[in-house]
């Protein structure tokens, strides 16, 4: 009864994966029927291209930066949401929206908030007299601000996900552990940092590992918000692969760029298995 599912997955995951490797070592282009083996040529040329280097840098900035924001924010939020209070269900619904909404739609919402002319953020800044009318920066039009915007939208989207996972981790800790700490004389901070945080480590790593995958392999946020611009300054590996491989018809280059995601994915998968294994042992 296992066979159909395994076969389906092999055909649609392992098959295309092998095909991607095959393309990456060839000169495949859309419309080109003759394939030639070109060795490492594709990898050499992408390594030399400046847009690839920017994409690598951005992929890491977005991934690491957003994970730092997400873990700090969701740890705080998980503490605040742990005890029941009136209206918690409603608030939880509202706070989950960024994660539940289709990424493309959340991103387009932000595109409107960060609009070059009608941005509500700019309006507030102008109203506070921090900027002159029309003087507020173009959030998505200047490279540094665009990078910061993409990073924040990624964080915004992942905070709810990370929060519910950490919340599950906190509820799984027996209540008498923090109580024992209280009786032992520990205050809020000591209990959080010396007792609960170390006990939460496995679950925090799960949240971080998933978060890394979701951010590192995502192209939607960048595609919608900036389409990689201005001047390729926010391009990430997946969006670059899309730009070259699909829009630019250069399948080989696109496949080669996609494959550069693999080493990190393997590391994440390995770490994930270790966490799961540890959790089983203890």
């Amino acid at each position: 009864m296992l066979a159909p599912a395994v076969l389906y997955i092999l055909l649609l995951v392992a098959g295309p994966f092998l095909l991607a490797i095959f393309y990456a070592f060839s000169d495949a282009r859309i419309g080109n029927t003759q394939l030639h083996f070109v060795g490492l040529e594709n990898f050499r040329s992408i390594l030399q291209s400046p847009s690839f280097r920017i994409a690598v840098r951005n992929s890491f900035i977005f991934t690491i930066g957003s994970q730092i924001v997400v873990i700090i924010a969701s740890s705080i939020l998980a503490i605040a949401l742990e005890q029941p209070f009136r209206g918690r269900g409603m608030l939880r619904f509202l706070m989950l929206l960024p994660w539940v909404a289709p990424i493309a739609l959340g991103a387009i919402g932000w595109k409107w908030i960060l609009d070059s002319i009608y941005s509500v953020i700019s309006w507030v800044l102008v109203a506070l007299h921090l900027y002159k009318p029309f003087g507020a920066p173009m959030w998505l039009g200047e490279p540094h601000l665009a990078i910061a915007s993409v990073l924040l939208v990624h964080s915004w989207r992942l905070i709810p996900f990370s929060t519910v996972i950490l919340l599950a981790g906190r509820t799984a800790i027996p209540k008498d552990i923090p109580e024992a700490a209280a009786v032992d004389g520990a205050g809020f901070w000591r209990t959080e940092f010396l007792i609960l945080l170390p006990m939460m480590m496995p679950i925090i790593s799960v949240a971080v590992l998933f978060g890394i995958i979701f951010t590192f392999t995502d192209m939607t946020v960048v595609y919608i918000l900036t389409a990689g611009g201005p001047f390729d300054s926010t391009q990430v590996l997946p969006s670059l692969a899309f730009t070259l491989g699909i829009q630019g018809s250069d399948l080989a280059a696109g496949a080669a760029i996609s494959l550069t995601l693999v080493p990190l994915l393997v590391i994440i998968a390995y770490l994930m298995l270790r966490v799961a294994h540890r959790a089983e042992v203890t």
């Binding site: 296992l2 599912a5 395994v6 997955i9 649609l12 995951v13 098959g15 295309p16 994966f17 095909l19 991607a20 095959f22 393309y23 495949a28 995958i213 392999t217 995502d218 192209m219 590996l237 997946p238 692969a241 899309f242 491989g245 699909i246 399948l251 696109g254 496949a255 996609s258 494959l259 995601l261 693999v262 994915l265 994440i268 998968a269 994930m272 298995l273």
Partner: peptide, 24 residues
């Protein structure tokens, strides 16, 4: 092992496979 293997395939992102799949 099969269970873990199946879980790991969930970690394979569309952005890794969309180029070859587009040809398929």
């Amino acid at each position: 092992r099969v269970g873990i293997g199946i879980f790991l395939t969930y970690l394979v992102p569309p952005t890794l496979l969309f180029i070859p799949l587009s040809r398929v």
